[in-house]
Design a protein around this nucleic acid. Structure first.
Lengths: 193, 193
DNA sequence: CCCATTCTAGAATGTTCATTCTAGAAAAGT
DNA sequence: ACTTTTCTAGAATGAACATTCTAGAATGGG
C-alpha cells in the first residue's frame, strides 16, 4: 500500500524525552527537537502531533522507561529495607550515570507545569501515587516476610518515603554535597527499624 | 538635579518575583512583566537590567521576603519540635493562603535552571544550605534547652529535615491529597523523639 | 529659568517561536 | 505500472520573544 516508516517511533520518542528531561518544556523548542530527534519537522507533527502532545507522550514513555529500569533492579531477592534503599540509590546514581540528565522528568514537570496545566497536574499526581504504591507494596511484602515490623503503618510510610524521594530528585540537580545525599537516605531508612 | 523615581523599587521587584514564582523563568515574558509590574518596559531595563538580571534580583528578594515571614513565625518561645513543625506548616499553608502561588521559587528554580546555569545552581545550593542551617540552629538550641536528645546528630538531621521540606515544596504544587502532606510532616518529626 | 534625569507611550529591530506549506523523491503493495 | 503513503528539504506564516529606540512630557535642584 504505502511506504513504511523509516524511523523507530519509540526510539525517536526517547530522544524527545531526553531533551524535555534535560531542558524542561518551555526551554525546549521545536527546532531543538528537530535537531535532536533526527527526523524531519514535518514527520514530528505527523507522528506525534503538536509540542504539548509530544510532551505528553514523552512523559508517558518516561514513566515506562524508568519503571522498567527500576524494576529490573528490584528482581533480586533482598531484605525489604535494602530493596527500598535500591529505589533511592537508583535516583541518586543518575547523578553519576551521565547517559541521562540528573534529576527526574516527573518532578521537573510537577514543578514547571502543575500550576499552569490542570491535565498535566493530574497526570503527575497519578504518577506520584504509583511510586507511593510501589513503596506500599514493598512494605506489605516486608511485613509478610517478617523483616518489617507490623507496628509500622505502610500507608503512612509510603507517603513519607515518596516525599523523601521527591526531595532527593530535586537535590541531585543542584551542587549539593553528594555525601549529604547518602546521609539523608540512611536517616530516612532508619525509620523502618 | 533630576526627577525622582515614581515607583517603589522594592514593591515593583516584588511584583516580578510573584510572576516568576508562579510561572517560572522561561514561561514569563518581558511583556508579562511589563503588564504585571505596572511600570514602563524601558523603566524595567533601566532599573533592573535584562531579564536574567531581574530574575536574579527577584530570587534574592524572594529569599529575604520568605525568611522574614518565616522568622516572625518563630519568634514565640515554643518547644523545638513545634518550632520545626512551624517551618513545615509555613510551606504547607501556602497551599491555602492564596496571596501567593503554591510552592517555592527556590525549589522551582533549582529544578528549572540548575542544570542550565551554573551561577544560578550555586546560588540555589547556597540557599538550601541556609535552610539547612536554620534547622541546625534550632536543633542545637533544642539540645541546649534539653527538649532534643543529645543522642541525635544535628548535622544529619538538618540535612534530613531540609530534604523533606524540599519534597513538600514540590508536592504542594500537585493535586496530591493534603491530608497526606500533614501525615508526612508528622512522621518526619517523629524521628526527633 | 535651566538642565539633568526619569517618566510615559509606543514604534522598531531582529530573532526565535510553533506550526503549516509547497514540491517532489522514495518505497511498498496491488 | 499505479497508487498511496511517508519520506526529504526548506520556505512561508504569523505570532511572540528580548531588547533598543525615538520623542516628548514631567519633575526637581541649581
Amino acid at each position: 500500500m504505502a511506504r513504511s516508516k523509516e524511523f523507530d517511533e519509540k526510539q525517536t520518542l526517547k530522544k524527545a524525552m531526553e531533551l524535555f528531561w534535560k531542558q524542561g518544556y518551555e526551554k525546549t523548542s521545536m527546532q531543538d527537537l528537530v535537531d535532536h530527534m533526527g527526523i524531519h519537522r514535518r514527520s514530528i507533527y505527523d507522528t506525534f502531533g503538536d509540542k504539548r502532545t509530544l510532551f505528553l507522550s514523552a512523559l508517558t514513555y518516561y514513566e515506562e522507561f524508568i519503571t522498567n529500569k527500576l524494576m529490573s533492579r528490584l528482581e533480586r531477592d533482598l531484605p525489604t529495607k535494602q530493596k527500598i534503599q535500591e529505589v533511592f540509590m537508583f535516583v541518586i546514581n543518575s547523578k553519576v550515570d551521565s547517559d541521562y540528565p540528573k534529576g527526574c522528568l516527573t518532578v521537573n514537570t510537577a514543578v514547571e507545569l502543575s500550576l499552569l496545566d490542570e491535565e498535566i497536574a493530574q497526570i503527575i499526581s497519578d504518577m506520584f501515587t504509583r511510586t507511593e504504591n510501589l513503596f506500599y507494596n514493598l512494605l506489605i511484602q516486608g511485613q509478610n516476610k517478617g523483616d518489617i515490623s507490623n507496628e509500622h503503618n505502610p500507608e503512612l510510610l509510603s507517603l513519607y518515603l515518596n516525599n523523601t524521594l521527591v526531595g532527593l530528585r530535586v537535590l541531585v540537580k543542584t551542587n549539593y554535597n553528594s555525601n549529604n545525599i547518602e546521609n539523608i537516605v540512611d536517616l530516612t531508612l532508619s525509620v523502618l527499624d
